[in-house]
Amino acid sequence: MTISDSVSVQSPDVLLQVRGLRKTYEVRNDPIEAIRRLTFDIHAGDLVCIVGPSGAGKTTLLRSLAGLLTPSGGSAKLDGEEIVEPPKGMAVVFQEYARSLFPWLTIAQNVALPLKAQGVDRATRAEKTAKALEAVGLADVAKRYPWQLSGGMQQRVALARAVAYEPRILLMDEPFAAVDAQTRADLEDLVRNLWHRLGLTVLFVTHDIDESIYLGQRVLVLSNRPTEILDDIAINLPDERDQLTTRNEPEFARLRAEVYERVQQAKAGRRPGDAA
């Protein structure tokens, strides 16, 4: 089964292919199984949300996909290339925005840094940085430092940095878990907006069911630890989404109930293959 997984033929537009991914930690010679077996595909241009109960190993999953952790087994491929270290063209927005921005660099320098690492020339760098900051609505704070901004604005900077990088895929790890509700709604719309306008591919990890439905085209529900995928739910909401109307649609309510039930089952310890 694992063998057939790893040699399975890749359909042409699959961007991220995850096959039987496993991760086991050693804590004081005690193996802890964080991720048991994950298999899913993400196609170019998708916006996929991963939702799961807290402690479901969401962060471990994301760090493995980002190449920051070496998985214990299985594989993750970006454009057919095995991910063993952070691959080219992958951007990550972390939950801890205050810790992921360089406090000694200005906003503009933070956004331009990955471009500089790629050897992009100064003029292009400045242009792309300005455009990205413009896109997240922060053009006027380019010369400030991250710690001079509010939490929501700092996360916008992190988003601008990811966008300016023009990634093939953007991973987001509970990016809005630590900001207030109003800011959070604004940021969600910003993500939808950027995804639309720039044709990004986004994998968005969250513990918030409403957020996952509002944002995603697809929601993957994770089980409890050791993590497996419990369900893959298509979100058939209209493409034009709005905080007020979308969240009041009957379909939204139905999906919320469905995902909510799955997450409750996950918390109760249901495994894939169990009778629902």
């Binding site: 980002a66 920051l68 952070p86 951007a91 801890e96 810790r99 660099l105 690492a117 790629q118 990088y165």
Partner: peptide, 27 residues
Amino acid sequence: IDEVLRDTARVYRLTPMMRFSTLILRG
């Protein structure tokens, strides 16, 4: 030096020189 910051530097593939000057030295 903050782990998230280290991860950020790795994800965005900063060159070894940039890691030394921007992450290690300044951090």
